[in-house]
Design a protein around this nucleic acid. Structure first.
Length: 308
DNA sequence: TCGATTTGACCAGT
DNA sequence: ACTGGTCAAATCGA
């Protein structure tokens, strides 16, 4: 049924769907493989499982790459922030000529696409960041830290992020990503995908735009969690996991779309008052973790770009 | 020595 | 006037 409605989509969106379907197929294979491993306790399959995981990650990377390049006009639209904005202003009257007087001469981000994720701990997202500022924020106990891509200078990468510790108890870290990476120096896959401490991995991703005038704005939501299997012997001491912070298996997107990690790998395509929706649930299970990834796309307004 | 971090200054937006 | 985002000189540290 996917092909019927996808036929009318632009090629890049069709490619996106194909990649998602591939990811689903790989994940199903991985699931079966891991199930067999669990039953047979056969360690020989771990390499094959690793290959499948790599394929899954590659599929997602390809999808995100497509999304990041599918709307060149929007990329241009996002340029007024950061260095380019200052360069453009330099030709005008708003910035003084001396280097010292250029300090603070910029345009505040307003229409730049961004997304926020909340994590229990600070985690490596695979990119090299350089801190360039810290500000005390009104009504916040903790300062906000500002980071830009390390390769801003040598490769002109415009990606930035802001990290702020919340006032919650236990403390959470709100990381807001602005712009997208154009650099080629991804150090490694995001830690969230595999290999991270499961109890550090409850995240909320909310992709959003501040451009209220365009309906082609970002409306993509993704959530992922790696849940640790229930085990009395490994009960996590310390932070209360049941109150005042996002549950690892329950997510809510900015438009109140709720995601729950559960059930077998499924793929659904349905309509809504906001257009066609593709919802993919990816699940894999090994002896110690459940890995669930839910993706929901509104295809009538694909994101301009995504970063992980 | 050089890259990263700190921190006060500056400016745009509200 | 106030707040937040960024710059860049000063400082730190490997």
């Amino acid at each position: 049924m996917e092909s019927s409605w996808a036929e009318n989509l632009p090629p890049n969106k069709r490619k996106l769907i194909e990649e998602l379907v591939r990811g689903r197929e790989f994940t199903n294979q991985l699931k079966n493989l891991l199930n067999n491993l669990t039953m047979n306790n056969n360690d020989d399959g771990s390499d094959a499982a690793g290959d499948l995981v790599a394929k899954i990650l590659g599929s997602f990377s390809e999808t995100l790459s497509i999304l990041s390049t599918s709307e060149p006009d929007e990329v241009v639209k996002a340029s007024p922030c950061g260095e380019d904005a200052r360069k453009s202003e330099d030709s005008g009257e708003s910035c003084k000529s001396s280097l010292k007087d250029r300090r603070g001469c910029y345009k505040r981000r307003k229409t730049t696409d961004m997304y926020t994720k909340i994590t229990r701990n600070l985690m490596d997202d695979g990119y090299a960041w350089r801190k360039y500022g810290q500000k005390v924020i009104l009504n916040a106990k903790h300062p906000r830290n500002y980071y830009r891509c390390t390769h801003k200078i040598d490769q002109g990468c415009q990606a930035t992020k802001q990290v702020q510790r919340t006032d919650d108890e236990p403390p959470m870290f709100r990381t807001t990503y602005c712009g997208y990476h154009t650099c080629k120096n991804l150090l490694k896959a995001p830690q969230i995908l595999l290999g991270s401490n499961p109890r550090d991995s409850a995240i909320l991703l909310s992709f959003e735009t501040h451009d209220q005038q365009h309906h082609d704005s970002t409306n993509i939501f993704a959530s992922a969690s790696i849940k640790q299997e229930e085990s009395r012997d490994e009960e996590i001491p310390g932070p209360d996991r049941t109150h005042n912070h996002p549950s690892p298996d329950h997510f809510m997107s900015p438009d109140l779309t709720t995601f729950e990690s559960s059930g077998p790998a499924t793929s659904t395509f349905s309509g809504s008052d906001r257009g066609d929706v593709i919802s993919e649930v990816y699940s894999c299970t090994d002896s110690t973790h459940n890995l669930d990834m839910d993706l929901a796309f509104h295809f009538d307004d694909l994101p301009q770009f995504i970063n992980f």
